[in-house]
Design a protein around this nucleic acid. Structure first.
Ligand SMILES: [Zn+2]
Ligand SMILES: [Zn+2]
Lengths: 388, 388
DNA sequence: GCCAGTTCATAAGGTTCA
DNA sequence: TGAACCTTATGAACTGGC
């Protein structure tokens, strides 16, 4: 009869309780509950000693037909007896000693894995020169710098932009006429320029430079950053649909359809590649601003003095690029930092190419001469303000 | 109709009284009160035999509509009948035998846990601790505690002992005959036991414990302290020479000559090592009384319940041992405190060894069976007194 | 993937105490 | 008597060595 029950068992039924078997446990196909039951109780021989009232009851534990889930599981003594009777093997349940040994093995494996993982991480993050631990990446003054830049952008650039936009539209809330459109094609780039300028002017790192250097950066590096700044501003401030349409048509008017198409595609690309982080793009703008060679296409006017000592600029840029990098590593890890930084560079280069052609267009198209002149004057004006 | 009631039951209503069910109890979903009721009364078949006035009353126990909380619970007989009628299963209430087995399991688990806890505590407590300055050692409430214990010992333990001794000898002032000697060998340990018991019973710290804990301490920790208490009593009360001789011969009769010799040597040692101080020994007795593991040699009777929550006992002991230590440091200084405390421990351990052998002798020698039985009954009696 | 073990939430017994 | 609590047993879900 046992044999018969085993035959049945091998088909996938629990040898003990007739439920669906999950596999062979302790020698016999059983269900999960019976497996757990036997593991817990196989060595508790006192359970067998209990003479329970089911021995002589309506079913025998040896009678296959009387076995059912509820029947067998009701009495742990009967259940254990049946486990043994169908041939479950006590010796397959680990003894305490065996189990301790097994757990030691598991623990040592865990430790090895952990050590390996750490080593790999170190290998990945290992810079040729130095590899600071995570806590050393950014100290208190770094965080201060970061938060200063972030809030300076908010309170100067973004605020200025919003204020000026409000004033611009205040003048013309009704359907825009042709005159407004013409004005707006100057006002829009103006607003972006002025807001960016006021941001830089608020930075202590800029203010601590010599006048010459300040003027130089202002004249050469604000224009190449207008695209990026526009992008960032659009990410930050909510824009009504009609405003958006107005902006689009303005850009079309300035750029012409072909360039506008490239402009849009770069904008789309930026949206895909640049992640939403309050620090990264702003810090990136600052880093780019402190470049000594950012421009050279827009304006070849001779009146601009090239500073003798650009060293402070480079040093500042160096400091900020380190800060940006450390922030990226700290916040996103080594691999992501590389990816994010690459994307920043890629996006900027694309923007630069489109921006350069926009600059050419501004300088050469007669209908844009006014806008171009005003923007130039703006930066010259800024220059005078700097001197104040 | 039963089926209907079961259908309703499965939704979460008590099958017996229609209150909210807490789960399946004894086979049927019931509320907590009905669960408790059935456990208590399932085996009390005499309840069913009571012909109660509700059988023929305004509702039938089989009529689902008439069932309500107040209805069913009003009459125990009806309630039990209804329990059975909705299918509650008597066999799911543990039999006495099953319950004893279960309680043994619980107790052994508890002991394992207790031992584990102690081991851990020892491991943890081997850390250096903060040393308070002398003035911080004992505050007003500490002194109040100390004086309470000292005077409680005087007015309860010592006084009771003196009173009982007076009564004992009042009966027999003349030369003791054999019958008196036999009686006295029970009366002497009895007096020591009862006086100690009345001391503990007077302590607020004891009275504030749960009954279970009080009973537990009384049954397990009074006997191990009899030797120490006898010593303290002998130090305190004047004893006539003939009384002393009487006591000695009584102890010889009980202990036998070998054990008596060891008993005397421990007594002598105690006199040398323990200093005369009204506080120390009494406080030490209290500290020892609040032990959770003092006994285990005297009485292996199974009828004693091991308390679930020993925490209050431990906390009290902790408080008193701190009090004792602070008193020692305050009164005798650091170094002396260590010496005195060590002596207390040494003396107690010696007494424990002798006491344990006395206990064995009491349990095994047939001529001491009566004394042993009376002492046991005394502590059981105490237990009943506790419950008052 | 198999088959040991571990963990955790839950069910259902019992006990305590006001 | 019943609310609050303590315990054990159970099985589903998961981990880890081989
Ligand atoms: Zn099964
Ligand atoms: Zn109920």
């Amino acid at each position: 009869m046992i044999t018969e029950s085993q035959n049945v068992s091998t088909t996938g039924t629990c040898g003990v309780c007739a439920a669906k078997a999950i596999g062979i446990n302790f020698g016999i196909p059983t269900c999960a509950p019976c497996k757990a039951f036997f593991r817990r109780n196989a060595r508790r021989k006192e359970l067998l000693g209990v003479s329970c009232c089911h021995d002589n009851g309506s079913y025998s534990i040896y009678d296959k037909n009387a076995v059912s889930c509820s029947n067998v599981r009701r009495c742990s003594s009967c259940r254990l007896r049946r486990c043994f009777s169908v041939g479950m093997k006590e010796e397959l349940v680990r003894t305490d000693e065996e189990n301790i040994r097994h757990r030691e093995l598991v623990d040592s494996n865990r430790q090895r894995r952990e050590i390996f993982r750490q080593k790999q991480q170190i290998r990945q993050s290992s810079h040729p020169q130095y590899m600071p631990t995570k806590s050393q990446l950014l100290d208190e003054s770094d965080w201060l710098h970061i938060s200063n830049i972030v809030s300076a952008y908010d309170t100067h650039c973004l605020q200025t932009y919003l204020d000026r936009r409000a004033i611009t539209f205040n003048n013309k809330l009704s359907q825009p006429d042709d005159y407004f459109l013409l004005t707006y094609s100057t006002l829009l780039p103006m607003n972006i320029t002025i807001s960016l300028f006021s941001f830089f002017r608020a930075l202590p790192a800029v203010r601590s430079l010599s006048h010459v250097n300040q003027t130089y950066l202002c004249r050469t590096n604000i224009r190449p950053l207008l695209f990026l700044n526009m992008f960032e501003l659009n990410q930050l401030c909510f824009t009504e649909q009609w405003q958006e349409r107005l902006d689009s048509s303005t850009w079309i008017a300035i750029f012409g359809p072909d360039l506008y198409e490239r402009f849009v595609s770069v904008d789309q690309l930026s949206k895909r590649l640049l992640i939403t982080d309050p620090v990264i793009t702003r810090l990136w703008i600052v880093v780019l601003y402190f470049s000594s060679t950012l421009f050279c296409f827009y304006d070849s006017q001779s009146s601009l003095k090239i500073p003798t000592k650009k060293m402070p600029i480079r040093e500042t840029q160096n400091a900020y690029v380190t800060l940006l990098w450390n922030y990226l590593v700290y916040r996103y890890g080594d691999l992501n930092a590389i990816r994010i930084y690459s994307n920043l560079v890629v996006v900027y280069l694309k923007m630069q190419r489109v921006g350069s052609e926009i600059g050419i267009r501004l300088r050469t198209r007669s209908e844009l001469a006014v806008t171009n002149k005003i923007l130039n004057q703006l930066l010259t004006l800024d220059e005078h303000e700097c001197e104040k």
